[in-house]
């Protein structure tokens, strides 16, 4: 049964990753792309989780936490940067 679950989730997550990558490619603005990249990271995290559950180990858990922290720091930094740049454009 686990093999079936693995197949189904692999297909679903691949579709999701494809969607996120399409949004990264066409996203009209930087923030859209950041958001989509965040989703892509979350999809990687989900894949790591499923790997751990199917193979019954915990080796990826720290990777998972690190992944979510990277996503957090990345999107916060970019959000800050975008805000600052537009602000200076407005003022000049």
């Amino acid at each position: 049964m686990m093999q079936l679950v693995l197949t189904v989730t692999a297909v679903v997550l691949s579709l999701a990753a494809a969607g996120a990558i399409i949004r990264i490619a066409i996203g009209p603005s930087l923030l859209d792309r950041v958001l989509a990249a965040d989703v892509l990271l979350a999809i990687f995290g989900a894949a790591l989780c499923i790997d751990m559950a199917v193979n019954r180990h915990l080796n990826n858990l720290m990777l998972l936490v690190a992944l979510s922290i990277i996503g957090f720091v990345g999107s916060v930094t970019v959000a800050r940067f975008v805000a600052d740049r537009r602000e200076s454009v407005r003022e000049s």
Binding site: V8, V12, L13, A16, A20, A36, V39, C49
Partner: peptide, 30 residues
């Protein structure tokens, strides 16, 4: 649970592609 959890990721991707502006995309994405 695993299948539904994976579907949530797919839902985020669908939301990213289908919602019209950044803010509503964020609802679906995060």
């Amino acid at each position: 649970f695993m299948v539904v959890g994976a579907l949530m990721s797919l839902g985020a991707a669908i939301g990213l592609l289908r919602f019209p502006d950044l803010m509503s995309r964020m609802h679906a994405a995060t």
